[in-house]
C-alpha cells in the first residue's frame, strides 16, 4: 500500500470502484458541505472535493475534505497549480496529509479568465505533470523536490485527470504515459459521452499496457436536460457530446429529460464496467448529488465494499 487510502484498498482488492465529486460552497457555511456529504455517503469509495473549479472562488478544497471526512466519507483532495507556487503546494500537501487526507488529484486548473477574478495573477509555477512528480517524490523518497529531507513523508494515493477528447488526439495516450511515469497511481477521465472515441483511446492505452500500471476511473456526468447538453458542448472547451446523445435526450418531453439522462448514465456505467481496463467510475453529478444513489445503485454498484 502506498497510501492506505480506502480507494487504494478497494481497487487493490479488485473491486470496481466508485468516486463522486462535491463542490464546496461559495461561502463559509459548513452545513452546505455536510448536506452534500449526506447525499454522497455510502455511495462512493472516495469523494473528490474540487479546488476553485472554473476559477470561481469557493471554500478551500482542504477544508471541504475535512468536513466530509468528519461525516465519514473518504476525501479526495483536488489540487490545481493555477493559484499556488511550489512553496504553497508543498506546504498544502504536507498539511493535507497531516490531517489524514489520503487521496490527491493533481490538476492544472482552468485559466483564471473564467472566474470571478479574471484580473488575478496566474501562477503556474509548475504544471500538473510536475505536481504529480512532486507528490511522488515527497511520498516515496521522503524528500522535498529541493532534495532536503522531510520530517515525515506525506501519504497519498496519487491521481491525475485526463481528457481523451481534447486535441490533438494523438498525444493523449503518450501524455497519460508521462503522467504514469511522473507517478500517477490512478486517473479520472473527463466526462465521457463519445463512447466510440473513448474506446479508441482506451485501446491505444491498453496497447501500451497502461491499464496495468494505472487504475483508470471513467468519468460520467448525467445530463439533466437537452439544454444542459447543448450548453456544455458549446461552452466547455474539450467537451465532446455527440449529436446522437443530445438527440436521445432531446427527443423526450421536457419533464422526462432528467429521468432519461439518469437512465442513459446508468447504461453508460454498465457498458464501461464491462470494458477491460476500466477499474472504476467517477460520477460527476454537478449540483445533482441527490441522484447519486439512484445512479450508482441503478448500475448495481451498491452497497460499496468494505475493505480492510
Amino acid at each position: 500500500m502506498k497510501s492506505g487510502s480506502n480507494l487504494e484498498k478497494v481497487l487493490a482488492a479488485g473491486h470496481f470502484s466508485v468516486t463522486a465529486e462535491c463542490g464546496p460552497p461559495r461561502g463559509a457555511d459548513p452545513d452546505v458541505v455536510r448536506r452534500k456529504a449526506a447525499l454522497v455517503k455510502g455511495n462512493v469509495d472516495a469523494c473528490n472535493v474540487t479546488d476553485n473549479q472554473t476559477s470561481v472562488v469557493r471554500m478551500s478544497s482542504t477544508a471541504g475534505c475535512m468536513l466530509i471526512k468528519e461525516e465519514g466519507i473518504e476525501p479526495l483532495l483536488q489540487m490545481v497549480v493555477r493559484d499556488r507556487n511550489r512553496i504553497a503546494l508543498q506546504s498544502d500537501i504536507l498539511g493535507a496529509s497531516a490531517l489524514g487526507i489520503r487521496n490527491i488529484l493533481c490538476l492544472s486548473g482552468d485559466h483564471q479568465k473564467f472566474g470571478d477574478d479574471p484580473q488575478a495573477k496566474n501562477v503556474f509555477d509548475i504544471d500538473s505533470m510536475q505536481l504529480i512528480h512532486m507528490v511522488r517524490t515527497m511520498r516515496d523518497e521522503g524528500v522535498f523536490p529541493s532534495g532536503n529531507k522531510l520530517d515525515g513523508a506525506p501519504q497519498f494515493f496519487i491521481g491525475c485527470a485526463v481528457n481523451p477528447f481534447a486535441d490533438p488526439f494523438e498525444i493523449r495516450v503518450p501524455r497519460l504515459k508521462m503522467k504514469i511515469e511522473a507517478g500517477a497511481d490512478f486517473v479520472q477521465t473527463q466526462c465521457i459521452y463519445n463512447m466510440d472515441k473513448f474506446k479508441t483511446y482506451l485501446d491505444l492505452a491498453k496497447k501500451e499496457g497502461l491499464h496495468d500500471k494505472v487504475k483508470i476511473l471513467a468519468g460520467v456526468t448525467p445530463l439533466k436536460s437537452a439544454g444542459m447538453a447543448k450548453f456544455m458542448k458549446k461552452m466547455v472547451a474539450g467537451m465532446d457530446i455527440p449529436d446522437a446523445v443530445i438527440k436521445r435526450i432531446a427527443d423526450e418531453p421536457k419533464e422526462r429529460q432528467a429521468a432519461k439522462g439518469i437512465e442513459m448514465c446508468i447504461e453508460q456505467i454498465q457498458e464501461l464496467k464491462g470494458m477491460e481496463g476500466i477499474a472504476g467510475i467517477h460520477v460527476m453529478a454537478i449540483e445533482w448529488e441527490e441522484k447519486l444513489s439512484e445512479i450508482i445503485g441503478g448500475a448495481g454498484l451498491l452497497p460499496r465494499p468494505l475493505v480492510e
Binding site: 492544472s108 479568465k113 496566474n122 504544471d127 500538473s128 481534447a166 486535441d167 474539450g238
Partner: peptide, 29 residues
C-alpha cells in the same frame, strides 16, 4: 501557452484553439 505549461496541452485545447479565447491559438498544439 496561456498557462505556461511545460507538458501541454491541457484538457482545454480544442481544434488548435486555447481555452482562453477563440482567437488564441493553443501554444502546445
Amino acid at each position: 501557452c496561456a498557462k505556461s505549461l511545460f507538458h501541454g496541452p491541457c484538457g482545454g485545447s480544442s481544434k488548435g484553439i486555447c481555452e482562453v479565447g477563440k482567437d488564441v491559438p493553443c501554444g502546445w498544439q
